[in-house]
Design a protein around this nucleic acid. Structure first.
Length: 266
DNA sequence: AAGTGTTCCAACCGCTCCTTC
DNA sequence: CGAAGGAGCGGTTGGAACACT
């Protein structure tokens, strides 16, 4: 059809986002919720195309995302799912709701591919993911080794206030989260990728039969409840997934000893 | 210390899918 | 039913950071 790309327009800014732009975007989404990306640059005055806004939100600013090193367990999940699904990063990301598809894709391309190649060269099969740490280990890891985007945003705001803008690589774990009246993500429930991921299922996956309905992520305080909630839905999804690919999976199922127990506690 | 090579990741691009009219 | 437009996905790239000589 030859529809012109949305970013062709003159005056559309490209390249790295500034903290100011991040704040504008976050504040807009906080008020209106994610979705209707077309309207975002118009309503915010950001000189960015809608795609760029969506990408920035889903890959960086969205609440609940982790940044930083992948755990061995996560690596195993990714390798396992990649073998099942191929390069369907969004689908893979749905099993690691705190990771973005872009992050997973990057990690695969930069680390795992090489790692696998190496291991295959050595005639070894990639080690199955260790069982998810019963509680404290992984939890501690999650809370201290990664900066959630809440941290990111807090830091962003903090940095902005101090006029020393943080960069993406600047974001470090263990940043004390400043109390942040700015961030109540209630509005973000119910629409858009953010919610979909937070509730453990990306929008695409929501078309699949195994879907839970009506889960919502009301606020940070419900995080632990969410973890409990995620277990059941993910079991369903995995069941669906594995049913679909039952044949190929047979030899891989040893990765999932105990069925859902091999999945991360999301 | 300077130059060069390598790694990594944020962001862009182009395509497809989905929804609306 | 088909065209148009918006959203999402996967591949790719630019450039900063890091490692090595």
């Amino acid at each position: 059809m030859g529809r012109p790309p949305c970013c062709d327009k003159v005056g559309v800014k490209k390249g790295p986002w500034t903290p100011e732009e991040d704040i504008i975007l976050v504040s807009y989404i906080q008020e209106n919720g994610p979705g209707n990306w077309r309207a975002v640059p118009i309503n915010t005055g950001l000189m960015r195309c809608s795609k760029s806004c969506r990408l920035r939100w889903t890959n960086y600013l969205r609440p609940g995302i982790r940044r930083g090193n992948f755990t061995t367990h996560e690596e195993g999940i990714i390798v396992h799912l990649q073998s099942l699904l191929g390069n369907r990063w969004a689908a893979i990301a749905s099993y690691l709701p705190q990771r973005t598809d872009n992050d997973i894709k990057n990690y695969w391309n930069t680390h795992l591919k090489k790692k696998l190649k190496k291991q295959q060269a050595m005639g070894a099969i990639f080690a199955p993911p260790p069982p998810p740490p019963s509680s404290s280990a992984e939890t501690a890891c999650s809370s201290s080794s990664y900066a959630s985007s809440m941290d990111n945003i807090s830091r962003l705001l903090d940095g902005f206030m101090k006029s020393s803008p943080p960069t993406a690589t600047d974001v470090k774990p263990n940043i004390a989260v400043v109390s942040d009246p700015f961030m109540s993500f209630d509005r973000m429930s119910g629409t858009g990728a953010g919610l979909a991921f937070i509730s453990g299922v990306p929008q695409q996956q929501q078309q699949q039969p195994a879907l839970m309905g009506g889960m919502s992520y009301d606020d940070e305080a419900t995080g632990q409840q969410q973890q409990l909630h995620h277990q059941l839905p993910l079991c369903s999804i995995e069941k669906w997934l594995l049913d679909e690919a039952a044949e190929q999976v047979a030899d891989l199922m040893d990765l999932s000893d105990g069925g859902c127990s091999s999945l991360p506690l999301l």
